[in-house]
Simulated assay, not measured.
Amino acid sequence: MSNLHNDSVVIDGLIIAKWDRSIFEDMRRGGLSAANCTVSVWEGFQDTVNNIADMKKLIRENGELVSLVRTTQDILDSKKSNKTGIVLGFQNAHAFEDNLGYIEAYADMGVRVVQLCYNTQNLIGTGCYERDGGLSGFGREAIAEMNRVGIMVDLSHVGGNTSQEAILESKKPVCYSHCLPSGLKEHARNKSDEQLRFIADHGGFIGVTMFPPFLKRGIEATVDDYVEAIDYVINLVGEDCVGVGTDFTQGYDKGFFDWITHDKGRYRKLTSFGTILNPLGIRTIGEFPNLTAAMEKAGWKEARIRKVLGENWVRVFAEVWGA
């Protein structure tokens, strides 16, 4: 592990792995200071609370490797004590059901990031694979409540109209925690140059992913292609509002992808990704130091590397979560 990687605050803006000790060990191997860890996608309130309880138990049982993050100070403390901070996040507001009161309850449990929609329409708005009618009235109230209690609004899988309205509606910075630019590959999940500029111009944040179906070279991609994609976004919006959001799906099999890509209507299939193979050089979370090395190889200045690896995430989280 290079000195620069070792010294830097390293934050992954999105991991949806099969949570167990081996993942936490790999996070340590990769030198992660913190990660936004998905604990809800299609689950309702009760099952989501069960997932949170399971995750907290796992964190307690592996306290020498990880700790729960409620504040940005917790991230810095994790870094100091050589642990990885676990940020509880949702990839769908489905778990809010139709009850605004649940939002504060989740915040009290430690949830800090919630994506409004996952690919498809829910009570809040529309995902990126469906005709997009924009933000609902309930969605506007949900964003106001998320702003109030300090939960970050994530728009990665959200449709263009709903995203634009959410960006304008939110009083706090919102993010695409894990996205790629359409400029490198046309895909429903990727964001156009205009969309990337729009979120940045309104104080928002962009975490760049390396999920192979959305990368220019797909499963042929390497860690250098990932750096190229991050570079593309930085060239559009500047280096202060860009970070990393890998979308690691470590430990999962095909059954998980079948479940994750379903839609309304008794598991109607929404999309198919084909083979999932992460870029060569960063196939596992433990290989994270190779990302820093690839940034150095690409001629990035140290200040830019530190910002993109984690300092930018810390700043924007502080703006949303408060002191």
Rank of each mutant, 00 (worst) to 15 (best):
V158D: 04
I103T: 01
F205R: 02
F138K: 03
D258H: 14
T84L: 09
G150H: 10
I219L: 06
G101H: 03
G89T: 13
V244C: 02
L168E: 13
V244R: 01
I52P: 02
N6F: 14
F317N: 08
V9Q: 00
R112T: 01
V237C: 04
V41D: 10
F317H: 11
K83H: 11
Y118D: 10
L88I: 12
I219H: 06
G299P: 08
F24N: 05
G286W: 12
Y106D: 11
E130G: 02
R189W: 13
D193L: 02
N290C: 07
H202W: 06
I59M: 08
R197W: 05
A17M: 06
Y267H: 15
V113Q: 10
S182N: 12
V174L: 02
E228R: 03
N99C: 09
D54R: 15
A35Q: 09
L280M: 11
G139C: 07
I260C: 12
D240Q: 02
K18Q: 13
D12F: 05
F273V: 12
G127L: 10
V69F: 12
V314G: 00
H187K: 09
N50F: 13
V153Y: 04
F317W: 15
G31V: 04
I23Y: 11
Y226V: 07
K171N: 10
Y129L: 15
E311S: 06
L116N: 07
V316I: 13
H157M: 09
E239R: 01
Q91Y: 09
D263Y: 12
G238N: 03
L280P: 00
L14G: 04
G183A: 12
L116K: 06
F214D: 05
H178A: 13
Y226G: 00
D225M: 07
G299F: 09
E97H: 03
G13K: 00
I151N: 09
G183R: 06
R189T: 07
N82E: 15
A188K: 13
H202Q: 05
N99Y: 07
Y106P: 09
E311T: 00
W19F: 09
I199E: 06
C128V: 05
E145S: 04
F45N: 02
